[in-house]
Nucleic acid binder design. Structure first.
Lengths: 200, 200
DNA sequence: CGCCGAGTATACCGACCTGTTTAGTACACT
DNA sequence: AGTGTACTAAACAGGTCGGTATACTCGGCG
């Protein structure tokens, strides 16, 4: 269940350039709107190389999502430990929202790549959809563990609430519908923690 | 500012059929993935008629979003009045989340059409982006008015929080990442109302 | 040496893309 | 009777889509 992301290190130089170009293009212009010819041009690579390395556009899309997932999974806990070092579990939970703001402000102003991808990948059989589901499942698991450590009355339910706030903040950030979604989300999280009787 | 949606009633029969077909296809398969030929075929109409009525695909996309916006704006307050008749402003606020569940369960299992469209319409100059911004702005205004009537300490801030919860619930619903996002969102809204000192 | 993996370059496939054009029909209003 | 609107039918443009085929170069390795 977790071995699928471990194949990545063996990327040929061209395969890496392809993934780099695909990531920027898919995220900024949309998956369907970007053709493989353009990716090849941007990567300074032949279309044949793309198909030799990835087999199909759909597989490349899945690889793109997998890579972002991988990055997020290693970055988020590290960032939380860095900013909430020495703090309580509650501090850590709140730190995930600050981290979200940092993440979005730094490289992802167009919202969550997974939510955006889900909007385009309408075929339920697409390989990318599993990656999307896995990502949300992982985040919920991570939050749930923090909730347990924080002494929440019902950690699973609180994790659901926090996940919902995360998604809401990300969407509002991408739509620029509200000036500072991160602050709003932090306030909501605080209220949820309070209600769940978190002490730590 | 509000006159743009009033032009709609004068739709020729063919124009209506086109919009009907476009709505289903755009929502279920994605905007970029659907071509005008397919829309024409589904609507039982010639491609020429589409261009005679709407001028371009982009304009048709904008019309599609405008129509969904219109439907939502008339439906939501009516549904809230219906389900929270005789209740307080707080009841009305909570009723918007139940309404969201009804809306999604009934016709929109793939999440919010505006969020999905925003993921695809990457060009900031696209006519549809304004419709998306207007829709979120309207919902925030509607929630804000309810918050005022509910006696919130800071109605604007509470409206931001509720809007965030709405978006989060919609996204989670579309991703099927959580069994019952509507209930989760209602709980969160209750906590937010409590914290805002709502009395009505 | 011989072979193979990784890569380039280029041409091609059929299908589909947005959008236009020409030609003609049906109908309502004045 | 005449005019404009709404529509059908069908072909056509120029380009892009995902994907394949052919032919070649280069470096490393046994």
């Amino acid at each position: 269940m977790a071995a699928q992301t471990a194949v990545q290190p063996r990327l040929t130089p061209a395969a890496r350039k392809i993934l780099d170009a695909a990531e920027t293009l898919f995220y900024n212009r949309g998956i369907t709107a970007v053709g493989v010819d353009l990716i090849a041009r941007r990567a300074g690579v032949t279309k044949k190389t793309i198909y030799d390395r990835y087999g199909s556009k759909d597989a490349l899309v899945a690889a793109y999502l997998r890579r972002r997932d991988e990055r997020w999974r290693t970055w988020l806990p590290a960032e939380v430990e860095r900013t909430a070092a020495g703090g309580t579990a509650c501090d850590r939970i709140l730190a995930t929202f600050d981290a979200l703001g940092t993440w979005m402000g730094g490289q992802s102003p167009r919202g969550c790549s997974f939510v955006n991808a889900a909007a385009e990948l309408t075929d339920p059989g697409h390989a990318g959809r599993q990656v999307i589901a896995d990502q949300k499942h992982w985040l919920r698991g991570y939050l749930r563990e923090l909730c347990e450590r924080a002494g929440a009355a019902d950690p699973g339910l609180l994790a659901d609430e926090l996940l919902l706030i995360h998604e809401g903040a990300t969407v509002l950030y991408g739509l620029s519908a509200v000036p500072d979604p991160v602050t709003v989300s932090r306030r909501l999280a605080e209220a949820a923690l309070l209600r769940a009787g978190c002490t730590a």
